[in-house]
């Protein structure tokens, strides 16, 4: 049994699990856009990102996941966060207008705007990773393939062999757990032959990796060769027509969800591209 890894499908029966995978991919994409567009002022940026962050927490809850354990398991993320913070402090980013807005550590100027910028990048990272994890945790690889297949299908008119592409993706997803098992087995086998994957100088580490990679390639080639034979013998012919066992059906509530998601994103776009500053508008209303 392989270890619990982030990004793996977790079988619950939540609202998010039942959602149409195509809609989930659509939502993920526009969520990503909402994360990465620029909002007019700092206040608006943090408000909008804050809303996205809260939405993410709600979604995590719905998917039976916890933000805390997710952040814990992404230890490399914390390294990134510290790294970004350091970079933004030592390579300051600030606009001319806010050039006086800083505080001193000793005699070194730390610009407030740099810190805000770093905070924005961090928030973006966390939200982005979280929503991607939500997608993979609530959607079976199979459903993802079907959805991708659906999105790719227009390309068929341009002569792209989409059924073959879909088959390749499906097989890749099917064999990820199998190959991870191979990795674990080879890792353990070489460890018991005295390979130390954790410690040692660079050359020793390089040797260690070689002792993992070569057997992995060999076994993967054997697998792919046998798989190809088995598929051929089971009547798979990439050039001929095949019927489909799995068909996606769009339900009426999917339409409802589609409308809601689109409406929410429209608000975000209005703020971003319409340069809408809610605080200024509010201030304008109050002072009028």
């Amino acid at each position: 049994m392989s270890r619990f890894t982030m990004g793996r499908y977790v079988p619950y029966n939540s609202f998010l699990h039942r959602m149409d995978p195509r809609l989930k991919i659509y939502s993920l994409i526009i969520f990503m856009i909402a994360i990465f567009v620029n909002y007019p002022t700092w206040a608006m940026t943090y408000t909008m990102l804050g809303i996205l962050f809260v939405m993410t927490i709600v979604l995590l809850r719905l998917a039976h996941m916890s933000l805390l354990s997710l952040l814990k398991s992404l230890s490399s993320l914390w390294f990134m966060v510290v790294f970004i913070l350091i970079i933004y402090i030592f390579v300051p980013r600030y606009s001319e207008a806010n050039a006086d807005w800083y505080f001193l550590i000793g005699t070194y100027k730390v610009y407030w705007e740099s810190l805000l910028e770093a905070g924005k990048v961090m928030l973006r990272l966390i939200v982005m990773l979280s929503v991607s994890m939500i997608l993979t945790a609530t959607t079976t690889p199979l459903a993802l393939t079907d959805a991708l297949d659906w999105y790719l299908s227009p390309l068929r008119w341009m002569g792209v062999p989409t059924p073959i592409l879909a088959m390749i993706i499906a097989l890749a997803l099917r064999f990820i757990p199998t190959i991870l098992e191979d990795v674990e087995r080879i890792l353990k086998a070489q460890s018991s032959r005295g390979v130390d994957f954790k410690h040692g100088h660079i050359f020793a580490k390089f040797r260690a990796i070689i002792s993992l990679i070569i057997p992995l390639f060999v076994s993967s080639f054997v697998r792919s060769d046998e798989l190809a034979n088995a598929m051929e013998c089971r009547g798979y012919d990439p050039t001929s027509k095949r019927t489909k066992y799995r068909k996606l059906h769009f339900q009426w509530w999917d339409l409802f969800e589609f409308v809601v998601v689109s409406a929410v994103i429209a608000c975000f776009f209005y703020v971003a591209f319409g340069h809408f500053d809610a605080y200024a508008t509010w201030w304008g209303l109050v002072t009028k």
Partner: peptide, 30 residues
């Protein structure tokens, strides 16, 4: 055909899909 290695002939992601794989190849109606 049934081959030696159980993993390397399991094409589908689930039991259901694996049995369906051959049916799809033979164009059995959905």
């Amino acid at each position: 055909f049934v081959f030696q290695n159980p993993d390397n002939q399991f094409v589908g992601s689930t039991v259901r899909d694996d049995i369906a794989f051959g049916l799809e190849n033979r164009q059995v109606p959905h």
